[in-house]
Amino acid sequence: MFAPQFDYYRASSVAEAAALLEQHPDSKVLAGGHSLIPVLKLRLAAPSALIDIGRIDGIRGIREEAGRIVIGALTTHAEIAASATLQSGATALSEAAGMIGDPAVRNRGTIGGNVAHADPASDLPAVLRCLGAEFSIAGSSGTRTVDAADFFEGLMTTAVEEHEILTSISLPSGSGGQGSAYAKFSHPASRYAVIGAAASVAVADGVCSAASVALGGLVPAPVRAEAVEDALVGKALSAGAIADAARCVGDSLDDDEVLGDVYASAEYRSAVAHVWVGRALTAAAARCG
């Protein structure tokens, strides 16, 4: 399959990329290309030009800064899965990145491309919503920071505007007594998420002192399962308490919004969502050290 013709420009800095995006109407950013190239080959989009940001070194890699972990937009899924900093400080994220596609996909695909594309079946949006991520976005008029609740606006739409570039994503570093996990119901053929559940819990004095749960895969944009969180805080994280809390997930899902397809209907996904929430919570609780 051949993509429609487009022009190609390689940016060496974020400022240059922003300028190129403005100079070329209907152009698109190219990062790893693992969502965009398939879209172009299927001719679902026909941009006039691609602005390749893949070689901008300043927006790649993982660093710790003022109590937060900062991940450059060009960091690959393989790098995130292998990062010791993320494995200990944001376990759910490294775990989810390691479940994306297959090794060759993880070598090329980037976190920035994954969230900017905002496919509902992607893994990372739910995890970043769960972990309270902040997104740094740059444009020709400067930079701004958006939190996860506002970043994911809906089906394949985010707060990144046409001429802007997502430069980095930051997370609070996990502290003692806290654990996080990601549980994924993979589509058996595509390996994308049919349901993805991310959970982060903290334990103090034997009871759950804080909980954050977010779901992806079955909804257009990731949602927090506040009903589950509320049911858990103040309780000891026993198997029974987790199962009971997980069953509240339906209260956080809007029936009209739940996605279905030939493989898994909306009704089915809604009915089994609690299982994946329970698994994520169980794994997160086991990691509270």
Partner: peptide, 22 residues
């Protein structure tokens, strides 16, 4: 369509699907 892996090559030493790379 980046599913089957028959186009796998090494790009700077790591595996990549050459049908999904320009």
């Amino acid at each position: 369509t980046s599913q089957c892996g028959s186009c796998t090559i090494l790009l700077d030493g790591v595996s990549a699907k050459a049908c999904t790379c320009l």
